[in-house]
Structure formats: C-alpha cells, structure tokens
C-alpha cells in the first residue's frame, strides 16, 4: 500500500503528473512578464540611473579636483612671482634710498666743506687785514713815539 501511495497509484501519489504541469509553466511565464514590468525594469532603471549618476559625479569631481590643482599651481606660481617682484621692489627701494642717502651725505659734506673753507678764508683775510691794521697802528705808534722822543729833545 505504502509504495502505491508514494509512487503513483491511479489516484494521487508523489509522481502524479497532470495539467498542473503546463498550467504552472504558463503561470511562471506570466509571472516572468509581470515581474519584468513591475520589478526588473523599474528597479533596474533606478539602479542604473544611480550608477550613472555616481560615475558622472565621480568624473566631475575628478575634473574639479584637477581644476583645483591647476588653480593651486597657478596661484602658487603667481604668489612666487609676486614675492619675487616684491623682493626686487624692496631691494630697489633700499638701493634707491641708499643712493639718495649717499648723495645727500656727499652734498652735505661738500657744502659743509665749502662753507668751512669759505669761513677759513674769511678768517684768514680778516686776520690778515687785522694784522695789517695792527702793523699800521704799530708803525704809526712807532712814528709817534719817535716824534715825541725827538720833540722832547
């Protein structure tokens, strides 16, 4: 009895093939089409759109990063140039002021020298004229003394 029930008696059994088989196949095929419309297509669209979005965002981010690096390098070189030019301006200005200082110093020194020379010359001439005067006065005095002495005699 058991074996009959298990392996296909006329009524029932484990291996009882009937119209369930083709109908189940049709049902699964229909389910495939339904799931294709309701599940695989929409979800696939969303997932692939997201993958596209991620890929394009990544590419964009990479592009932006490259741009940023380019800009950074540009700015660095500009900064370097600016520093160099600032340095040269500073050294130029230093040289300029140094020159000006030297010129002014030379001028002042020359002027001072000149006025000193002039003063010395003036002093010399005054000294000379004073000496002449004194000499004259001394001569006059000498003559006067001689005159007096001569007169008293």
């Amino acid at each position: 009895m058991t074996s009959l029930i298990l392996f296909g008696a006329s009524e029932g059994g484990l291996f009882d093939f009937d119209a369930t088989l083709p109908l189940m196949a049709v049902q699964v095929v229909i389910l495939t089409f339904i799931l294709n419309t309701l599940f695989f297509k929409p979800v696939g669209k969303v997932v692939e759109e997201r993958e596209g979005y991620v890929v394009s965002s990544l590419a964009e981010a990479k592009k932006k990063l490259a741009e940023v690096e380019q800009l950074e390098a540009d700015l660095k070189s500009q900064l370097k140039e600016a520093r160099q030019s600032a340095q040269s301006v500073i050294s130029e200005a230093e040289a300029d002021s140094d020159n000006l200082f030297r010129e002014a110093l030379a001028l002042a020194t020359a002027e001072a020298n000149a006025s000193r020379e002039e003063t010395r010359r003036e002093i010399d001439s005054q000294k000379k004229s004073a000496l002449n005067q004194i000499k004259l006065d001394a001569e006059k005095l000498g003559e006067l003394i001689v005159d007096r002495l001569l007169a008293s005699k």
């Binding site: 298990l6 296909g8 059994g13 009882d16």
Partner: peptide, 26 residues
C-alpha cells in the same frame, strides 16, 4: 503524502493545493 486536492476543469484535472499556495505566495 501524495494526496492531492483535485480541481476538475472541463476534462482536465489539476492539483488545487499547489495553485492555492502558489497564488498566495505570488
């Protein structure tokens, strides 16, 4: 084991319990 709930449609027979559970699960 091996007993089925038969549904008679015209002159074909199908296993009703299989379709019932498959419809619920689908």
């Amino acid at each position: 084991v091996g007993k089925h709930l038969y549904w008679q449609i015209g002159n074909i027979r199908i296993h009703g319990q299989v379709f019932m559970t498959s419809w619920i699960l689908i």
